[in-house]
Nucleic acid binder design. Sequence first.
DNA 1: GTCTATAGATCGATAGAC
DNA 2: GTCTATCGATCTATAGAC
Lengths: 193, 193
Amino acid sequence: MTTSPRSENTRDALMDALYDLFRTRGFEGVSIGDITQRTGLGRSSLYHHFPGGKDEMALAVARSARAWLQANVVAPTLAEGDREARVDRMIAGVDQLFSGGGAPCLIAAMTMPGAPDSVRTELGSALSEWIDAVCDALIATGAEPATAHAAALAAVSRIEGALIIARATGDDAAFAAGLAEARAALVAVPITA
Amino acid sequence: MTTSPRSENTRDALMDALYDLFRTRGFEGVSIGDITQRTGLGRSSLYHHFPGGKDEMALAVARSARAWLQANVVAPTLAEGDREARVDRMIAGVDQLFSGGGAPCLIAAMTMPGAPDSVRTELGSALSEWIDAVCDALIATGAEPATAHAAALAAVSRIEGALIIARATGDDAAFAAGLAEARAALVAVPITA
DNA sequence: GTCTATAGATCGATAGAC
DNA sequence: GTCTATCGATCTATAGAC
């Protein structure tokens, strides 16, 4: 192989640090100096891994996050099972993603103006895929197609809003409440079949 | 008076520009150069109005926004009237605040790390006051105190989340849907009296 | 109150040795 | 792959004339 195991480890640790920085401070809130401090790597090391600079780092993080969401939220939502099982798997993935409300949302942080358009569209797609998966799962478990999309949109909105409020007010319980309410609302969507 | 009418106009126009910049780009996303370009004022003019620099500008905007929310959302929510009238006045204020979903939320933008703590606490208080007002209005119109807070938190979360999703996906209709749903949920909170 | 000019720090990005 | 050293641009903030 062309890359040593150590390179992979370095790259993985770098990606983790980048993800954590970008999700909490947004694109413009993270400087190259912040990344060197967090990772211990020098400037040139960072530009060796990401020749495209900060833009490429942010896009790599966005793509990684979209893939994670696909594997841990979207796929479990679309997998076999009844309504309750699907929703519970989705909620579990989301709870892990946001660390029980203590971690902010990359999508909310990096869709603000200032981030490269490629990053913003990537994250917009990730969010749409999440909503669509919930919608499809509702329909697959007997919901009326006309109301499924609104219910999916409401659930995801409720969760994203809870993250904003938890951060602004410092009330971590607000996220748990939002997650529980989103779950209950999805389970309660009427079955027409 | 110590200040001429023209000063007041300059100050007001400056505040409007600052509010618009900070709500869309966040604290770190706005540079002094951005403000000079937007307002046409030189650097020293800005520091004449705000000797404390960018931090003082952000705090002034946060306080102004809190006062606006108090006058146009909190007070109308707490004013006399039945449940539906109060909720409708609240929703109207919020719709105006966010320009029908086209304008981002200052609270979401400026409670991110990087903004001065004074700004973050000011906006956290503003958000809490909004939620508390909705809660009090629900109780005053016959809702169970034990469930009123959860319902108020849910409604505000739904609205804030809709703003995030509208921006990330580019779907402006998501905000209108969120606002309508929040209204319906508040009106539907059971009356126990 | 507004201007020009600029200080001092930090920004993203690059060069070249090892 | 990682380092030191540095470039040019931009940042916040200030000085001083008008």
